[in-house]
């Protein structure tokens, strides 16, 4: 039975690595993103790397009108439909402080946009009674930190949404995985001060594949972030509010 993966935000570094690893196992791919030309090149690359088919679909998380055609495309396939959500944006907290309107786009890009899409996709997944949804959250969503709390709040909202979606879809045999990556070596973190324990997109992608195979609910990746965040979550608030980590 063929697997079809809808990849939202397909040209991000982690998504590219993930799509390649899926292509190598013979999965069919639907690449959704804003830059059509880039996606066409990526689709060609994935076909040469083993995907039986790869489509480039117009998609903008801020434009719900772009969602239905992607879901229709997936509905036409036989076999298992899966989705991985890599979209998101992370403006500097300082920029948000200057222009609070950015709060709306941060929440839209990281939380309500992906939730809208997954809500539209859910009936198809329920009808098929199988498949996996991977939602990329962030360790930033585990606690509101001075330097990044708008982004963190949006990711926290997404985590809670995914938890509820897991509750709903799990009853129909669909797996929902919440992924909380630490720092990853992508264009988003390139050249930013203060990065440590940076993981490669390929390693993160590999962890996603393993989590899918093992039907995990929630993963931190790389794994040690579970323990780093355990500590950070357990710092008492009266101390935490004075820290700037």
């Amino acid at each position: 039975m063929t697997e079809t993966w809808i990849i939202l935000g397909a040209s991000s570094a982690i998504a590219r690595a993930f799509a390649r690893q899926q292509a190598a196992t013979g999965a069919r791919l639907i690449l959704a993103g804003r830059n059509h030309q880039e996606l066409l090149e990526q689709a060609q690359d994935l076909c040469l790397r083993g995907a039986p088919e790869a489509d480039a679909a117009e998609f903008d998380i801020r434009n719900p009108g772009t969602f239905a055609p992607i879901i229709d495309l997936a509905a036409q396939t036989t076999g298992t439909v899966n989705a991985a959500v890599f979209v998101g944006s992370m403006p500097e907290q300082a920029d948000i402080d200057r222009d609070p309107d950015l709060l709306d786009t941060v929440v839209l890009d990281n939380f309500t946009g992906p939730a809208h899409f997954l809500h539209a996709l859910a009936p198809l997944l329920e009808a098929r009674g199988k498949g996996t949804v991977i939602g990329i959250g962030s360790v930033a969503g585990d606690r509101g930190r001075l330097g990044n709390y708008a982004y963190g709040a949006a990711k926290a909202g997404f985590h809670t949404y995914l938890s509820g979606l897991r509750n709903r879809l799990g009853r129909k045999g669909v797996q929902v995985i919440t992924v909380k990556p630490g720092f990853v070596d992508t264009a988003m973190t390139w050249g930013i001060e203060g990065m440590f324990l940076v993981a490669s997109p390929e390693d993160i992608a590999k962890a996603l594949i393993t989590a899918t195979r093992k039907r995990k609910n929630e993963i931190y990746t790389p794994w040690f972030w579970r323990y780093i965040m355990l500590i950070i979550r357990n710092i008492p608030e009266f101390i935490f509010k004075k820290l700037s980590i």
């Binding site: 590219r16 830059n35 090149e41 992508t186």
Partner: peptide, 15 residues
Amino acid sequence: HLRATGQLARPEKTA
């Protein structure tokens, strides 16, 4: 053995 300190860009998109 030899090291350089300089600026690197790493584009992820062809364009």
